[in-house]
């Protein structure tokens, strides 16, 4: 017996993915201007609780990346694949890099954040698409 046959969403996180998927990605901003990503009730930098949604910048750039040759179960048939941390006007997001040959990725490369699918699991995954 299970509680439900439905896929359980992660409040905040899946809502954020929904927004990123439609090009309306956001981050959370506290009154002091600290940025963070949901789900979050409290600013991790200063403890403020009045967090508001602000639009993510369209254009980001790769801060650091790796080409993964040995993956975990959900990714092991997709190697080699590229994971990068990209920065969007001060907000950093981790995602798969797609739309470019792995050997051509470099730090500073322009990307936009979207939502793709992990073909092995069908799960949604954050994707940094080369611009």
């Amino acid at each position: 017996m299970t509680w439900t046959d439905e896929e359980i969403r992660d409040d905040g996180f899946d809502d954020w993915l929904d927004a990123v998927a439609t090009g309306e990605g956001y981050y959370l901003e506290c009154p002091d201007g600290h940025a963070s990503l949901p789900p979050r009730l409290v600013c991790p930098d200063c403890g403020a609780t009045d967090l508001s949604e602000a639009l993510l910048a369209d254009a980001g750039e790769v801060v650091t990346y790796t080409i993964v040759h040995v993956g975990t179960g959900a990714f092991d048939d997709q190697t080699p694949y590229v994971v990068a941390i990209a920065e969007f006007d001060g907000v950093r997001i981790t995602g798969l890099v797609r739309g470019v040959d792995p050997d051509d990725v470099e730090t500073g490369a322009p990307v936009e954040v979207t939502v793709g699918e992990n073909p092995a699991t069908g799960d949604r995954v954050v994707v940094h698409r080369a611009r």
């Binding site: 990503l37 650091t64 993964v68 941390i85 997001i93 981790t94 995602g95 995954v125």
Partner: peptide
Amino acid sequence: FEVRAGVTFPGAYALMAR
């Protein structure tokens, strides 16, 4: 934010190394 995006333990340290 990391595991679902394909970050492995070696991958995380590779991000740091680069």
